[in-house]
Design a protein around this nucleic acid. Structure first.
Lengths: 193, 193
DNA sequence: CGATTTTTTGAATCATATCAACGTACGTGG
DNA sequence: CCACGTACGTTGATATGATTCAAAAAATCG
């Protein structure tokens, strides 16, 4: 059931059987078809989601109706709108499936109970959060200090898996570029080889 | 000594006197003069730093020698290079004082000891980290989906304190703009009133 | 006060966005 | 299984807006 979830967990924080049992009882599985929403802007984010299979994207729609992808999540990634999850305010993000997906969900009540009662879970969350924070900082730094071309090349290095799996215009959106611009960058790159 | 540090701490996680005592014994004060470095790129980040007074900036230098400010920290903010602090790798960031500053430092050994032995500290760290993560996500989203002008206006709303205290070219750097461009945005804004 | 830093302005250049058209691949229903 | 419609990627022409470079004006510091 939750194999990949716990595999990932144990890599960071080893668990005794009874601890695993307790955490396990707080989890649920959700399957999502391609193009289905996990979260729509305006909804309250009720779950922290771990991806066991498939690929999701998280994005906002701006004033002009353009979408901007903030995050891709594939196997072994955790995705949610932390802001909405914690504050209970409506989310500004959409999350949907780019491929059929199997997800592990944990809801807020369970999350808070585990934080209180299960030190290993608290530690795991802290490590997860630290990792997410570092990744975000790196991305922000790139977005401020690199050119579009450099940003794309960094993306290829950092997320080679995703660059294979995801349509090009979504990568453009993730990088803050127009699809035409990314197409031209790729053309230019290929001439360099 | 650590008044502002604990004031901030207690707002999130209340402390018993003996807990405060224990944490207190792990802290040290550092004073920094304007323009002095707290951290230089290439150094290993050995402390998590809380600002009790003054203003710091954190920035990278790119391949072409241009600086890019990633973060401002004033009173009540925490600053460090988490990446370097955790991994022990040399930092890519500089941190220096824009104004004379008084800082509260905690080093890695103390930090890890407290995480293990002091649940309140662990919880405080998790909350801090969550806040930092949310702020970072918001900024990244702005950087991807807003125009320079919109980004500047959001900055004015989000960090009104800093917009008063910091030279304009540093704000430009923080927003990923040339100083001339920010100057023109301001001129345009002022015409609108 | 004089020196240095910061901000503003103008003109030229460069990069990305925009708009429009075309070719291709993909999946769906007939 | 084929045909159609929709998605996607590419290309070209043009427009827009930020950068760059240079210089002057304004503000700040010692």
């Amino acid at each position: 059931m939750y194999n990949l979830y716990f595999e990932n967990f144990i890599k960071r924080v080893p668990l005794e059987p009874h601890e695993r049992e307790k955490i396990s009882s707080c989890l649920t599985i959700k399957n999502l078809r391609r193009n289905q929403y996990l979260l729509q802007a305006g909804d309250i984010c009720k779950y922290i989601t771990f991806v066991q299979k498939g690929a999701l994207k998280q994005y906002t729609t701006d004033l002009y109706g353009n979408n901007h992808i903030v995050q891709f999540a594939i196997e072994n990634w955790t995705i949610s709108d932390m802001e909405s999850f914690i504050t209970g305010n409506p989310s500004i993000y959409h999350i949907d499936a780019m491929e059929d997906a199997q997800l592990v969900l944990i809801d807020k009540a369970a999350h808070e109970m585990l934080l209180k009662e299960e030190p290993k879970y608290q530690e795991y969350m802290r490590l997860q959060l630290t990792g997410a924070y570092l990744a975000m900082q790196k991305r922000l730094n790139s977005s401020i200090s690199l050119s579009p071309e450099e940003r794309y090349n960094e993306f290829l290095v950092m997320r080679p898996d995703i660059s294979q799996r995801v349509p090009q215009h979504m990568i453009a959106s993730y990088l803050g570029l127009q699809p035409e611009t990314l197409s031209r960058i790729r053309k230019k790159n290929s001439r360099k080889l």
